[in-house]
Simulated assay, not measured.
Amino acid sequence: MTTNELRRAPYAMTEAEAAALYRLLTWLSPSFPVGGFSYSSGIEWAVEAGDVSGADTLRHWLSAMLTDGAGFCDGVFLVHAHRALQLDDMRGLRDVAELAAAFVPSRERQLETTAQGRAFIEIAQAAWTCEGLAAAVAQCEAIVYPVAVGLVASAHGIPLSPTLHAFLHALTSNWISAGSRLIPLGQTDSQRVLAALEPAVAATAARALVATLDDLGSATFRADLASLRHETQYTRLFRS
């Protein structure tokens, strides 16, 4: 294939696709300043209690959180917020935002998701002009992190499926980052855990895309207890 033919290759991204990818990579990068590095979602208590002590136990803990806990529920909230804005359903958006804010199991998790949601909205609005986003945000009394991501992505015309997958990848990466500092875990082992969780991320995204709000539910009782007990943990590196 010649150089000119390569330049005209049909698999090249359009300008809109390139912009969408650029923004997703930026918004869900660890360097995007939403403060995710300061939260462990209860993993800090799980390490102190001995539930998580190495790469294997961290992988099992996070797999459960993804498929049967916060990962799946946050994915569903993101999906419904994204779709509500696409359909210009402001009543539906308000209901999703309200339910998502009430769904977290502890005070610290509430702080974690609302603080990150607020920061995500504010920074995205400050850096990118987007018609209609401010009006949509004004419809919601409180916006948690997954709703914020779904709302901003939808307002910018970024497709739902890659947004959801990128969000779950970022969520998992942040959990692993917390685990790597607490256990501690080396960089190579951390990446092995992330690679091993790839099927769980994909399966969770697939379920969340077709789930209704009635499908919401969690069975990760130990993780929920961890987020509650972290509030009174004597020594803490993280805010949750």
Rank of each mutant, 00 (worst) to 15 (best):
G75C: 00
V104E: 11
V104Y: 08
M90D: 13
L133I: 00
I121W: 06
L133M: 10
A136L: 04
D189V: 04
L168R: 03
P146S: 08
A166K: 03
S161Q: 15
H156K: 12
L160K: 05
L87K: 12
A166G: 09
L99N: 06
R192E: 09
S154P: 02
S180L: 13
W175Q: 09
T172H: 12
A127I: 10
A124N: 12
Y145C: 04
H156M: 14
C73K: 07
T188Y: 07
A126P: 01
A84L: 08
S177P: 02
A84W: 08
L99I: 05
V193M: 06
A102W: 13
A126W: 07
A127L: 15
E141F: 06
L168M: 10
T114R: 13
E112L: 09
D189I: 03
T114L: 15
S177K: 13
W128G: 12
L99G: 00
T114V: 12
D74Y: 10
A126G: 07
L151F: 07
E131H: 11
V147L: 01
Q86P: 00
H82M: 08
Q191N: 10
E131P: 05
L93H: 05
V147I: 02
G132R: 14
R181N: 11
L151C: 02
V79K: 01
L133Q: 04
R94D: 14
S154W: 05
R118H: 14
L78I: 00
L160T: 01
C73N: 14
H169R: 13
N174H: 10
I123C: 10
Q110L: 11
A142E: 15
S173A: 14
A102F: 12
R107P: 01
D89W: 13
A101K: 09
A100R: 00
V149L: 11
L182F: 03
A153H: 04
I158M: 11
V96C: 07
G186Y: 08
Q125Y: 02
A178Y: 00
E108Q: 13
S161D: 14
A136E: 08
D95L: 09
H156N: 08
R94W: 12
V147M: 01
A142H: 15
I143C: 03
F120A: 00
R181F: 10
V152P: 03
D89Q: 09
F103G: 01
A127S: 15
A100T: 02
W175M: 11
A81I: 00
D95Q: 13
C130M: 12
V76G: 03
S180V: 08
E122F: 05
G71M: 06
V193D: 04
V76W: 04
S154H: 05
A102N: 14
A195D: 12
D74G: 11
G179K: 06
V76T: 03
Q139S: 10
T113R: 05
W175T: 04
F120N: 00
G75S: 01
E112I: 04
